[in-house]
Simulated scan of single mutants.
Amino acid sequence: MFDTSDTKFTPSSAYEIVKIPETYANIIERYGVEGKYVNAQESPWVPFGVNAAIRHLAFDVRNNIASNILWIKSGGVIGTHKHRGTIVMVCMEGSARYLEYDWVAGPGDFIWETPGLCHTLVSDDPNGVKLFGWLQGPIEFYDENANFLETVDVWWYINHYETYCRDHDIPINKQMYL
């Protein structure tokens, strides 16, 4: 059993900015990239099929990464797909599972998918599910006969978001572009 009283350090409780010495401060100042804050409420829910929507949060074209919240609005399915990169998701509300596995993710549960896996995302919850996702690399979608339909990657997500914004006179949030 782990004894928490034997912790080697206690994080500082100083409520102030502490200037940390940095050997490479001048290099970091020249080439470092500042972190980003994205207000999710400024990103619209963009339809994704008949029973789902995506709230786009970030696009990183250098690494083919997109981040979003996928909302399956009631019980439903996001068709069979194959990941060509790593996908990390956290269930925020409701529940979801893959037909190919025997687990069901609920609020706070962590899902990690590796390249090459094929699966079919479903929510049996009458209230659906919201999943926060960090998606690296392309995802290939297939129909019920295993025929290829579409490749979804960072470029597809950008087009999905920007097209919807233009069609609905919504300003494009440049904070989302990492």
Rank of each mutant, 00 (worst) to 15 (best):
E42A: 08
E42T: 04
S43A: 12
S43R: 10
S43F: 10
P44T: 06
P44A: 09
W45F: 14
W45S: 01
V46H: 10
F48K: 05
G49P: 00
G49F: 02
G49V: 03
G49E: 01
G49N: 03
V50E: 10
N51E: 11
N51F: 10
A52F: 00
A53F: 06
I54A: 01
I54N: 00
I54V: 06
I54T: 02
R55V: 07
H56D: 04
H56E: 09
L57K: 06
L57N: 04
A58H: 08
F59D: 00
D60V: 08
D60Q: 10
D60Y: 12
D60L: 10
V61T: 02
R62S: 07
R62I: 04
N63K: 11
N63D: 07
N63V: 05
N63A: 09
I65Y: 11
I65T: 06
A66S: 10
S67K: 03
S67A: 13
S67H: 06
N68C: 11
N68K: 09
N68R: 08
N68H: 12
I69E: 08
I69S: 02
L70R: 00
W71K: 11
W71M: 03
I72W: 01
I72R: 01
I72Q: 01
I72N: 01
K73F: 12
K73A: 04
S74C: 07
S74D: 10
S74N: 10
S74H: 15
S74M: 12
S74W: 12
G75N: 10
G75S: 11
V77E: 13
I78T: 06
T80N: 08
H81T: 07
H81L: 13
K82N: 02
H83R: 07
H83K: 02
H83N: 03
R84A: 07
R84H: 15
R84W: 15
G85C: 05
G85Y: 04
G85F: 08
G85L: 06
T86F: 14
I87K: 04
I87G: 02
I87N: 05
